[in-house]
């Protein structure tokens, strides 16, 4: 049997090699890297007066405004890229929060096993049977006012000490408080799949001889988890991180589209699409408000899904869908 296992491991190529041969996944990765760089850098290079609101509302795409302007006369390219910052940022950080929670939860549940594992997994099943999007909405409504009040408290404290600059910075930050709330709420809700996948892997890994050996040599449980299990879990965690990001982005834009998420002056793809969907009418089509955010968002989600599927084929071939 050991020989057969060794042969199988030779015959099956390394996950990274599988990924390198997957051209669609590599193109997707390249696209995402370029998009992130553009979203970070280009808004800094745009002239300041483009970013401000002006009286030139609903200008079609032209030399001055490549993608036209919106209802407030702001340049759409700037809005679109700052929306990309928010959407991608919320997706990444929200997914990272869910990764930390899900990995810790799954590792503890799988490693400890027994009754505790049973209770922990039953809890996950219960949470999974709760309509997720409803819960995020309630959570956001609950957190939002607290965070706003908290930031306001800081602003007043700064004002009381006559730190005008700081007070102004804080009131600028307040416009983005919803972003913070979204990240936390989405991260708190999206970890369930990650926890189940990690637990499943830990159940397999913990029976392996190197874990037994490590324990026999007196390594603590925490040490085994950190030194031996976590490195072996890293590729699967990376895979499901890539698949969680589009899910978080979708949830974020879903909420922003309904007007429960990101609000002006901050923008995200969802809030831009909301504005775009409101102005389609047969008489005077303002197509640029809808088409550009739709294209960029669909392309990004497609790229993330391609990359995630590629990673899953490479590192978790048995799971399928």
């Amino acid at each position: 049997m050991p020989e057969a296992a060794a042969q199988a491991s030779i015959a099956r190529p390394d996950g990274w090699q599988v990924l390198q041969r997957n051209r669609a996944a590599l193109i997707a990765l390249g696209f995402l890297v370029v998009l992130s760089l553009v979203a970070i850098v280009v808004p800094m290079l745009l002239p300041e007066d483009l970013k401000l609101t002006s009286s030139n509302s609903f200008v079609p795409p032209s030399a001055a405004h490549f993608l036209g302007t919106d209802v407030n006369g702001q340049d759409m390219l700037y809005r679109l890229l700052s929306g990309a910052r928010v959407s991608l940022g919320v997706g990444l950080v929200g997914a990272l929060i869910s990764l930390v929670i899900g990995t810790l939860y799954g590792m503890i549940s799988g490693y400890v096993g027994g009754r505790i594992d049973g209770v922990m997994m039953r809890t996950v099943e219960v949470l999974q049977s709760v309509p997720r999007i409803l819960f995020i909405m309630i959570l956001i409504a609950a957190l939002d006012d607290y965070v706003k009040e908290w930031i306001d408290g800081w602003r007043l404290a700064a004002q009381a000490r006559n730190w005008a600059d700081l007070a102004k910075t804080i009131s600028d930050v307040k416009a983005y408080s919803k972003v913070l709330v979204m990240i936390v709420s989405l991260g708190l809700v999206e970890w369930l799949t990650m926890a189940r996948i990690v637990r499943g892997q830990v159940l397999v890994l913990r029976e392996m001889t190197f874990v037994t050996a490590s324990r026999a040599m007196g390594q603590s449980s925490w040490g085994v988890l950190r030194r031996h299990l976590l490195p072996n879990l890293s590729t699967i965690i990376l895979t499901y991180l890539t698949l969680t990001i589009p899910a978080v982005i979708l949830d974020e834009s879903f909420l922003s589209f309904l007007g429960l998420g990101i609000e002006d002056p901050a923008a995200s793809w969802g809030s831009l699409l909301k504005d775009g969907a409101q102005v389609i009418n047969p008489l005077e089509s303002k197509w640029w408000l809808l088409v550009f955010p739709a294209l960029l968002m669909s392309a990004s989600l497609l790229a993330l899904n391609f990359l995630g599927d590629g990673l899953r084929d490479a590192f978790d071939p048995k799971s399928g869908d």
């Binding site: 589209f257 775009g276 739709a294 669909s298 497609l302």
Partner: peptide
Amino acid sequence: ALLSISIPSFISGPFLIAIFAL
């Protein structure tokens, strides 16, 4: 299939309206 997973209903909806209705 991957394409239609990547296009959420709040994108496809307005486009369906624009094409088939308007």
